[in-house]
Amino acid sequence: MTTRRFSLTLLILIFSGCATYAGLNYDQLFGQPEVRERTVPPSSPEADVFLTKVKPIIDNRCVVCHACYDAPCQLKLSSVDGIDRGASKELVYQGTRLTASQPTRLFEDAQTTAEWRELGFFPVLNEREQSLAGNLDAGLVARMLTQKARHPLPETDQLEGFDFSIAREQVCPTIEEYDAYEAEYPLWGMPYGMPAITNSEYQTLISWLGSGAKMNAPLPLTEEEQAGG
Rank of each mutant, 00 (worst) to 15 (best):
R97E: 00
L98I: 05
A100T: 06
A100C: 04
Q102L: 15
P103D: 08
P103Y: 13
P103N: 06
L106P: 15
E108S: 08
E108Y: 15
A110R: 06
T112I: 08
T112M: 13
T113V: 14
T113P: 06
T113Y: 15
A114C: 06
W116C: 02
W116E: 06
R117I: 06
G120P: 14
G120H: 10
P123M: 15
V124Y: 03
L125Q: 05
L125E: 05
L125W: 11
N126C: 12
N126F: 12
E127H: 14
R128G: 07
R128Y: 10
S131F: 06
L132P: 04
L132S: 14
G134H: 11
G134W: 06
N135Q: 01
D137I: 12
A138W: 08
G139L: 03
R143P: 01
M144L: 14
M144F: 07
M144T: 03
T146V: 13
Q147G: 00
Q147D: 07
A149W: 08
R150W: 15
R150F: 13
P152A: 04
P152D: 04
L153F: 11
E155R: 14
T156Y: 12
T156P: 07
Q158K: 10
Q158C: 10
E160M: 10
E160S: 11
G161S: 10
G161R: 08
F162E: 03
S165C: 10
S165A: 09
S165M: 01
A167Y: 13
R168T: 02
R168I: 07
E169G: 01
V171T: 05
C172P: 02
C172D: 00
P173C: 05
P173L: 03
P173I: 07
T174Q: 10
E176I: 03
E177G: 00
Y178A: 00
D179Q: 12
D179W: 08
A180P: 01
Y181I: 01
Y181E: 05
E182F: 05
E182M: 10
E184C: 05
E184N: 15
E184G: 00
P186V: 04
P186Q: 08
P186L: 13
P186R: 11
L187E: 04
G189W: 04
M190I: 06
P191M: 07
P191T: 02
Y192T: 01
G193V: 08
G193M: 02
M194L: 14
P195C: 03
A196G: 03
I197L: 06
T198S: 12
N199P: 06
N199A: 15
E201A: 02
Q203N: 08
T204N: 04
S207Y: 14
W208C: 01
L209C: 03
G210Q: 04
G210N: 02
G210R: 09
K214P: 02
K214Q: 14
K214S: 02
M215K: 10
M215F: 12
M215G: 07
M215A: 09
P218I: 04
L219D: 13
L219W: 09
T222M: 14
E224F: 11
E224G: 07
E225K: 10
Q226A: 11
Q226D: 03
A227K: 15
